[in-house]
């Protein structure tokens, strides 16, 4: 297995994630697409770490930071989604138009 194989998987995962984040109407679906993109970035970092700098672990530590920030992001995001759902009873992104003048 060469580095190219891992990068190809990560690129495919990233593009699937973009597609989900762009096309889902459901806010939770958008969040899931963003999670896929985070994971693609993590695969990239771990793969570059393994193949180009096998004796260092800096890439993996950056991945750890990304995982932590993703966890924080998803916690706040889902709390926001629930708060909005309690107020306007919808989870579709196009219905979130309270700020429309």
């Amino acid at each position: 297995m060469t580095l190219y194989h891992y990068l190809a998987v990560s690129a495919a995962l990233f593009c699937i994630g973009i597609f989900g984040a762009l096309t889902r109407r459901n806010v939770i679906g958008i969040l899931m697409g963003i999670e896929l993109m985070f994971n693609a970035a993590n695969i990239n970092l771990a793969a570059f770490n393994r193949f180009l700098h096998p004796n260092a672990v800096v890439g993996q530590s950056v991945s750890l930071f990304i995982i932590t920030v993703a966890a924080a992001e998803v916690v706040v995001g889902l709390a926001l989604v629930l708060a909005i759902y309690r107020n306007i009873q919808t989870i579709y992104a196009e219905d979130y138009n309270l700020l429309k003048g």
């Binding site: 993590n42 695969i43 771990a46 793969a47 993996q60 991945s63 750890l64 995982i67």
Partner: peptide
């Protein structure tokens, strides 16, 4: 599983 393949056991 891909992380495990890459030898990143802690990840």
């Amino acid at each position: 599983g891909i992380f495990a393949q890459l030898g990143a056991d802690f990840l």
